Amino acid sequence: MVEQAGKAISGTRGARARWLPLRFGTGERVLGGLSVVVGCLLVFHGAVPNAVGRLGSLLEAFLPWLGLAVPVLMGVALLRRSVVGLAVLLVPVVAWVSLFGGLAFSRAGSEYDVTALQHNVSDENPDPAGTARELVRAGADLIALEELTPSAVPLFAEVLASDYPHHAVIGTVGLWSKYPLADIRRVDIKPAGIGEGWERGLRATAGTPQGDVAVYVAHLPSVRLSPSKGFGSAWRDESAVLLGAAIAAEPLDRVILLGDLNSTVDDRGLSPVSSQLDSPPSGFAFSWPAAFPLARIDQIMTRAASVTHVWTLPTTGSDHMPIAARIRL
């Protein structure tokens, strides 16, 4: 009996030993180090420098996806049967949940006054009229469009006319509204290095039942990723400074910004804008690329108002997905 008990205890210890290493070996140190690095990058992403290849902005543009490192590290820890490796994974898990858990599990806000829709329709869209019909089905009160071409504008205007009697187009951006629009003007967000004829910003006053609201439509320059130059966002960042200055000078308290800002609100390059406005608290609503959305680079942001819910709409003929938001004024 004593011998059998001894064997049972020995077997238990053997099973425990397979899972709980007696020594913190090289594999455990590597797993633990990687877990801590992922957690630190999530929490302290602002400390990653932009001096070389603008790596900080690149990380922040796709920050939620850093969480994919967790299942990979977990798989390695399970293969190694390392309790230590699994325990240290709590660092990136807690970091990710603290940053994005509220977005993943949030519910739509019930109270709102205005529904806004933002869409980069693509200057290569093969069916602008079909895209316009899809947007009408959403029933938004405000529709902002970017990459409008001279040939596409009449098609959008024709389809949207009956539901949106008020509209303004400046350059390649436009705003369609169910509310009267006034004080429509160009917003200069053109970086110094871009030639003439580049018009991607407008501002209008929308007369909503809750009062006047300044509505901005903007399309910031695209960014480029290359092995030699890294994350090329200099023009985008310069344009964000100009847009931020225009919003700061806006006399109306309530502001709605609709636009393709070519990055996420976590990207420090957009801080001249994002520091002044509130971002949607709910849903990831990734908008680009339409074939496999990786990030929300199309934004709906507010001042002296709140976005209670944001979501994506069905794909159109564009490489972006439309996004819509409910706004409480």
Rank of each mutant, 00 (worst) to 15 (best):
S162M: 00
I184T: 15
H119A: 12
Q118I: 00
P221A: 07
E134M: 11
V173T: 15
S162A: 14
A182P: 00
H166V: 03
R186L: 13
G139L: 14
A138S: 14
R224I: 04
L202M: 13
L145I: 10
P128M: 13
P180K: 11
L117E: 14
I184L: 02
A182M: 03
S177F: 09
P165W: 01
P209W: 09
L148A: 08
P126R: 13
L175W: 05
S162H: 07
Q118D: 15
V173W: 03
V169W: 02
L145V: 12
G130D: 14
L220Y: 04
E111N: 14
A218W: 03
P128W: 06
G195R: 08
L175S: 01
R203D: 00
T208M: 10
L117Q: 10
L202N: 11
Q118N: 15
A129D: 12
V187W: 04
L175D: 04
T149W: 01
A140T: 04
S162C: 00
A140L: 03
H119M: 09
P154S: 07
Y216E: 11
E146D: 14
A132D: 09
D188A: 03
R200H: 15
G207K: 15
E111M: 09
Y179M: 11
A140P: 04
A218P: 11
W198Q: 06
Q118M: 15
D123C: 04
S151H: 07
I170C: 05
I170K: 02
E196I: 06
V213E: 07
K178V: 08
I143S: 05
P180N: 06
G109Y: 01
S151V: 10
G130S: 13
E124Y: 05
V217R: 04
P154D: 08
A132Q: 05
V121L: 05
P154Y: 01
Y164D: 10
T115H: 00
P180S: 09
W176M: 07
P209M: 12
D127P: 08
L155V: 12
P126T: 06
V173P: 11
V159T: 13
P221Q: 09
A152V: 04
W176P: 04
P191V: 04
A129N: 04
H167P: 07
A144V: 11
F156E: 04
I170H: 09
P165R: 15
H219A: 06
D123Y: 03
P209G: 11
L148T: 02
D188G: 01
S122W: 10
D127C: 07
Y164S: 11
T131K: 01
A116P: 13
A204V: 10
V169L: 05
P126S: 10
T115S: 06
G201T: 06
D212Q: 12
R133A: 10
G211I: 04
G171R: 04
D212K: 05
V187K: 05
A206Y: 02
A144D: 09
T149K: 11
A132K: 00
F156C: 01
R203I: 00
D183W: 02
G171I: 02
E147H: 00
V153E: 15
T205G: 08
L160T: 02
A132H: 03
L145Y: 08
A129C: 10
V213H: 08
A206W: 02
L181G: 05
Y112I: 00
L148S: 08
K190I: 01
T208S: 14
H119S: 12
R200Q: 12
L145R: 08
V187M: 03
R133I: 00
G109F: 05
